[in-house]
Structures are given as structure tokens and as C-alpha cells.
Design a protein around this nucleic acid. Structure first.
Lengths: 231, 231
DNA sequence: CCTACCAATTAGGTATACCTAAATTAGAGA
DNA sequence: TCTCTAATTTAGGTATACCTAATTGGTAGG
């Protein structure tokens, strides 16, 4: 076995490379450097080069790698990467909705399990959850066919209809506002129930499943970006 | 690293050794031969010897291995093995009860996932299922503390109270009876709903979730061993 | 245009679990 | 007690993914 350097390669490991390339490539799916991949995977750059050579020489080409030219997913690679992302986000949703996991613990478990569930498992939890399109962090869940719709964030101050949202980001421009915001437990990734107070020009918010509510002025609400869930 | 030959060793692999030793050791927890372990794990005997040497030299002693003297689980090893069995059976129950898996598919998925779920996952599915003591195949689920109660099979002909059972075994003494039995779909491992017909001296049975019922005479029912579920 | 720097690659090595083939050893029967 | 056989162990090798250190390549400034 000397020519081409192809070989089998462990699924779990390969999946992690593909996911990383997908993420780092961004919306434009641009080529990804070995260094950035290495950093993301917490692996030595030399190891990444090695793995990519093995992957691109393999029978099913998952990756378009060129010496000194970075990597990009092939169509097959992208399909597989989205499949893994779908697994991950479905599992997260399942853990949160069905098994009542705290939101913070959902990621770690999904990160492990995503590599080992069968198609049947995927299909069954999807059905149980009513084929959700959004995970508990507000990220889109790719469809079975590998379609993923983009999500857009909005300002908390622009909410017109009450609902459940995920916190996308918080502006750190105004230290005073930031302190107020953090005091309510608002951190990126958390879930937020929002009720618009019609009388005073403010928003009543509560975090996660907690019943404790805080009032935020419109001014402060301008520093919080959120994403609507269930939509 | 020359003395003692200890090392880390992959959890999944170790777990499979421990489970196999537990099973092969039987109720008396007798010492297990390298050959039988090798057969069960479908691995060369030499590989088994190697692994056991590594395991018994390891910091946390999971196994009591002696040159030419077979293996036995240490208390810690038994604890771990029962933990894995608990995972396996809880997952099977979960797949069957919550995700509506067909009974035949439950084992394969559990065999993979049992190594990767967290304590939290275990605890949550156990709670969701009401802390079951029996899996869908009729096997006891070890408790969190590693206790496992023995289950006993009975003859279908001895059923006095209707209920749901698991088929344990079928006698192949009488070919004619056997043919009748198999015609109903009765195979070891399947689930059986049993209703005793008070008028005629026979049993009305149906397999799995199917609504199709068959009548079996008392004579035929003497050739089927079953285990009561939900007890 | 050339050089210095940093990214990427190559070379060579570790640890994992497994394999086959060649000893060894324990135990049963003569 | 001796011998034979089958189980077990040892020796030596494969493939996996990773590592470090040394080399090479591309490119941005001088």
C-alpha cells in the first residue's frame, strides 16, 4: 500500500475535520488554511496536513486539498458535514425538549453522540420533535437533504410580538448598559422570554425556564441582539 | 515506560472486555478462559492476552488476570461492567418505549451508544421511563448501585393472569408443535401479549404491537417458555 | 530582486488495538 | 513419570491518529 496514500480513517475523526472546514469556510465556503483548522481542532498543523492528504487520496473524495493551497469541502464532504451538523442540532433539541437538559449541558453531550447515532435514530427524534428547523441555541437545523436556511438576528428593541428568543450577542459599547444586561443573566446562547410592556416603553424578559422577570428599557434593549425561536 | 506494561486503553474496547467477562463468568462469576473471551469478542486469543495484561497492570485494577489462569472481574471491574449493562438496557427500553423502535433494531443501536452516553443521559432516560427494572427483552436492568435481580422464566401453559411477556425459548422436541408455534411469529426475544381463554382451554396470543391474535392449545403452550414483563 | 518570516510539509517517532506465526506451558492420559 | 495436545503466551508486524523537529515554499518588505 504505497501509492496514493489512501486508507480507511476513523469516522469520528473525519467528521470532526469536515465540520471544522464547514464552519471555518463560512457562508462563502472559502478555502480554509491548515493553521486555522489545526487551531480549531486543537491538533498540530502537521497532523492536519497528514490527515487531509489521506482524505483527499481516498476513494470517496470528501475534500479538495491542494499543497500550500488550503482545503475546501467537496460536494460529498459538504453533504456529510451538514449531516453531522443536523445530528448535532437534533440531539441538542431532543436533550433540551424531551430530556429536560439544562441548555448549557446540551452541547457537550451532542458533540459526543452526533458521531454514533443511526439514521433511524435521527429520523425518530426528528419525528418526535415535529421536524424542528431551529435548535435550542437558535441555529438552523439542516434538512435531511442538506439544506440549511440562514437565520437572522434582530434587536431586542425591535420586538413587536412577544415570544421566545435566543440571545445572539450583546453590545459592549456602553459599560453601564452592559452591567444591567448581565445582571439579568443575558448571555449569548441563553433563551429569553420577551413580553413588551405597552404602558411603559420597556421589555419584560426572563431567562431560560426561570420565572423571574426583569424590565429593560428600550435604550438598553438596543444593545441586545436576539433570534426568534419557533419560526 | 517499560515496567508493568500499564497504559491508558480506549474505554469502548475495555468496556466490551468487561461485559464479555461478566456474561461468560455467569451467575457464579467463575474465571473465564482466554479462548472463550476471544470467541465472544471475535478477536484473536493473542490479542486478548495482550489486552488483559495491559488491563491488570493498570492503575485502576478492573480485572484479576493470571498467566494461564483465566480472568475474573475485580469489584471495580464488575461495577463498571454492570454500569455498561445498565446503559445498554436502559437505552434499549428507551428506544422501544419512547422512540418506537422495532424490537429487533433496539440491540444494535444500544450496543453502539452504551459507551458514549453520560451519567446525566442515563439518569434522564431512567427518570423518563419511571426507573424500569426490566428491558423490552425481559432482562433485568441493574440499579444505579449495580444490583441486578434474577429473572425467571415460566411455561406459557402456566399463565394464570393475562399480560405482556417476552419469549424466552421454544422447545424443539415436537416438530408439529414447533411449526404451529413459529407460524404465530413466536421467536425468542419477541414480545407476547397473552390472554387466557376461560371457555376453551387455550391461550390467545399476539406478537409485538400487532393486533393479529392466534390461539394456542395448552399442549402447544407447554413448549414455550416466557418471562413476565412489568414486574 | 532578494530576503526573512511564517505557513505548510516531510521525516521520523509514540501509543492505541489488533493480527499471524512461533514458542511455551499446563494438564490429561498412557 | 512421561508425553502429547490444546490453550496460552511471546515475538514481531499492520493500521490508526497523533506528536515534534527539521525542511521547504510563498510572499511581503526592504
Amino acid at each position: 500500500m504505497s501509492p496514493g496514500k489512501q486508507a480507511s480513517a476513523n469516522t469520528e475523526s473525519v467528521d470532526n475535520y469536515l465540520k471544522a472546514i464547514l464552519t471555518l469556510g463560512g457562508r462563502e465556503e472559502s478555502r480554509v488554511t491548515i493553521k486555522s483548522l489545526a487551531e480549531r481542532l486543537r491538533i498540530a498543523p502537521a497532523s492536519v496536513t497528514n490527515m487531509l492528504q489521506k482524505l483527499s487520496g481516498s476513494t470517496a473524495t470528501l475534500v479538495d486539498y491542494e499543497r500550500h493551497g488550503g482545503v475546501q469541502l467537496s460536494p460529498a464532504g459538504k453533504r456529510r458535514a451538514l449531516e453531522v451538523v443536523r445530528h448535532h442540532r437534533l440531539i441538542e433539541t431532543f436533550l433540551y425538549e424531551v430530556l429536560d437538559y439544562p441548555l448549557e449541558e446540551v452541547h457537550e453531550e451532542a458533540e459526543r453522540l452526533e458521531h454514533f447515532i443511526s439514521e433511524r435514530f435521527e429520523e425518530r427524534i426528528a419525528a418526535k420533535l415535529g421536524h424542528p428547523k431551529i435548535d435550542p441555541h437558535g441555529h438552523s437545523i439542516p434538512s435531511m437533504e442538506g439544506e440549511m436556511t440562514a437565520r437572522e438576528s434582530m434587536l431586542l428593541a425591535d420586538v413587536i410580538e412577544d415570544g421566545i428568543f435566543v440571545i445572539d450577542s450583546v453590545s459592549d459599547q456602553d459599560t453601564h448598559n452592559l452591567r444591567l444586561i448581565e445582571a439579568c443573566g443575558i448571555t449569548p446562547g441563553a433563551r429569553l422570554r420577551v413580553r413588551k410592556n405597552s404602558s411603559s416603553d420597556s421589555y419584560s424578559v426572563s431567562i431560560g425556564r426561570s420565572s423571574k422577570a426583569y424590565d429593560l428599557s428600550r435604550e438598553v434593549a438596543r444593545d441586545v441582539r436576539i433570534i426568534r425561536l419557533k419560526g
